[in-house]
């Protein structure tokens, strides 16, 4: 796929309220700059992130998706992110298996004090996705394929 020079990817980052979201906040307080095409969605825990959110994000036009939570052991609810870890280890592989480029989906542990890590991750993901170009897989612009028989 030819990449337009002006292409700015849309990236959604599901961020845990107790760590990554605070980390992103801290990044802002410290006047750190991260790419504005990363859109943060606050969730109560990374365990809240239903794998269907990822699929739906790709379908609705996102070019990349991030899921960010507390480091294992630091979960506000004790164990939420342990479940997240298993879930997205599987989901990540399943997405790749279905042809989604691994660079389009990232999960990261970023604590409330790791403002720089949030900035770097956001920049890194944005950079990768930019190189890949717009995502067409699972995208709903390609929807309502009337059957070949209908010849439309």
């Amino acid at each position: 796929m030819p990449v337009e020079k002006s292409f700015e990817p849309a990236i959604v980052a599901f961020c845990c309220n107790w760590c990554t979201y605070t980390g992103a906040d801290l990044a802002g307080l410290n006047r750190m700059k991260y790419p504005e095409n990363v859109h943060v969605i606050r969730v109560p825990c990374s365990g809240r992130v239903n794998p269907q959110f990822i699929l739906r994000a790709f379908q609705k036009g996102c070019d990349g998706v991030m899921v960010c939570g507390c480091h294992p052991g630091d979960c506000h609810y004790s164990t939420g992110n342990y479940f997240t870890r298993r879930r997205f280890m599987i989901m990540k592989r399943l997405l790749e298996y279905n042809g989604i480029d691994p660079e389009r989906f990232h999960a990261r542990w970023i604590s409330g004090s790791e403002a720089a890590k949030f900035r770097d991750t956001a920049a890194e993901v944005s950079e990768h996705v930019k190189k890949l170009g717009p995502n067409v897989k699972y995208r709903e612009e390609f929807r309502i394929t009337e059957s070949a028989e209908a010849g439309t």
Partner: peptide
């Protein structure tokens, strides 16, 4: 609820397939 479009399209069919797989996979 908006998780799954009812229309017949490659995107929605794939999302059904992958979601069902994930729901029952383990």
């Amino acid at each position: 609820t908006g998780f799954q479009g009812k229309q017949h399209s490659r995107s929605d069919n794939q999302i059904f397939g992958v979601t069902r797989a994930f729901h029952v996979g383990d």
